[in-house]
Design a protein around this nucleic acid. Sequence first.
DNA 1: TAATATTGTCATAAATATGTAATGCTTTGT
DNA 2: ACAAAGCATTACATATTTATGACAATATTA
Lengths: 242, 242
Amino acid sequence: MAVTILVVEDELAIQELIALNLKKAGHMVLCADNVEQAQKMINNVLPDLVLLDWMLPDMSGLEFARRLRREERTKAIPIIMLTAKVQESDKIAGLEAGADDYITKPFSPRELLARIKAVLRRRLPEMSDEIIEMGGLKLDPTTHRVHVHAHDEPSKSMEITLGPTEFRLLHFLMAYKERVHTRAQLLDRVWGDHVFIEDRTVDVHIRRLRKILEAVGKENLVQTVRGTGYRFSIECNEENIG
Amino acid sequence: MAVTILVVEDELAIQELIALNLKKAGHMVLCADNVEQAQKMINNVLPDLVLLDWMLPDMSGLEFARRLRREERTKAIPIIMLTAKVQESDKIAGLEAGADDYITKPFSPRELLARIKAVLRRRLPEMSDEIIEMGGLKLDPTTHRVHVHAHDEPSKSMEITLGPTEFRLLHFLMAYKERVHTRAQLLDRVWGDHVFIEDRTVDVHIRRLRKILEAVGKENLVQTVRGTGYRFSIECNEENIG
DNA sequence: TAATATTGTCATAAATATGTAATGCTTTGT
DNA sequence: ACAAAGCATTACATATTTATGACAATATTA
C-alpha cells in the first residue's frame, strides 16, 4: 500500500527518526517543521495520514487538527497526535479536535507503525463507485440513484429516493451484505469516525430505510439480528420452521 | 476548444517537434524536461492532458504517472505515454500505471493528434468540441450555441442564450450526464483548478441556468441531489414512490 | 466613455434531514 | 406467565442544506 504520510514535528531529531522509520516501512514521507509549512505541503499534495506534534512553534497541533477537520478537502485525513504529555484530559482534547489516535513520546518505531496501520485499517475502505445490484435493488454511486426492479417485469424498474444518510447506510449495507454490523460499527463507518451520536439513532435510520423499501415490496432485505445489530441479506429470514 | 497539453520529454528535439505540431493544431503547450519541472508546472496550471516520456532523467515516467493518479487534484488528467520500447510487457505496465494510451516512437504527427483526440473524447468529453444532443437540447461547442427542440415539432428549434459560465456549466453537465457532481468538482472543472470561489456560488449559477431552461419548458433536466451536488439527467426524478 | 452584461457574495426564505426522547411491541430467560 | 432487555415506531425540535432575489464589483461591448 503506497501511503503518503505527512510528519509535522519541530524537533529535527525526532522528525528524522520518524521519517526514517516510515520510509523503511515503505511509506512516502513528507516533513514539515511547523504549521505554515505543513499547510503548504497539504495544498500541494494530499497525504493519506498526518502525524502531528502537540506543540508546534506557530500554532498548537490541536488547533491545526481542528483546522484540518474543518476543511472539506482535508477532513477525511486520519490524524495521529504525538505528544510528551500523558494526562487524560489532553488525550480527550486531542480526540475531540478530531485526532484518530494518540502516541506518547517516547515511543518505539514498532508502536508507531502499528498505530498507523490500525488507523488506516479503521478508515473506510474507499467505497468504490461500482454499481451494486442485488436482491432486486440497483444502487449506482455515481448517479446517486437506487432502482427497484419490478418483480414481474425485470426490464422495468422504478427509482426510489433516499435521504443522504439512508443512501450511505444502504450503500454500506449492500457493499458488505450478509454480514452483521453493530450499531457502533455502523456509526463509525457510515456516519464517520469521530461522531458522538446515540446508538439508538441507528435504529431510527434503519427504520427510515425500511419504510422506503417496504413501500416497494422489499421488506426483508434489511434484517435485525437481535443482540447484535443489522444486516442486509437476500436470503430470507422468515421462512423457518416454527 | 483550447486544450492545454503538458509534454514531459527530455530529448529536446522530440519535445520541440511535438510542441510544434500541437501548437499548429491549436493547442496550448507546456514543456518540461524532467519530472521535477513537470510537477512544478502542474502545481501552477492543471493541464488537460499529459504526454509523458517513458524514460526520464530523474524518475521513470511510469512512476510519475502513478503519482499523478494518486493525487486527487491530478488523477483525472488523461495521460499518453511516449516510448521507444515496443514490448508488450511495457505496454501493460504503462496502462496499469494509469496511462490512457500509448504511442511508440517514432510516430507521425497525424497519429499523435489522432490519439490525443481519441483520448480526449473518451476522458474529457467536454473538451472534444462535439455536438451534444440530449433531452431536447442541442449544444454546439464550436458555435457556442444551444438550441431547444420544440416538443411537438422536432424539426423546429429555438435558440437560447446563456452567459459564458452558464454555457460551460451546461456543457460540462451534459458531457457527463446522469452523474452527480459535487460543488467542488464543478468549481474545479467548470471554473478552473485553483479558483477561490465559494461553493455556494455554484448554486447561484445552477439557478441561473435553470431559470433559462424553465423558460423553455425544460425544468427537470438539472436536478439537485441533496447532500451531494447536482446532476443533468433526462430520467425523471419525480415519479417515485415516497 | 457610457451602456450593458456578467459574476461572485450575501441575506433570507424554504425545504428537508437529523438526532433524541417517549412510548409501545417482541423476544428472552426464569 | 412475568419481568427485563432489546427493538420498532412515532413525533418533534433543531440543524443543515438549498433556493432565490438583490446588489456591488468587474468585465465587456458599443
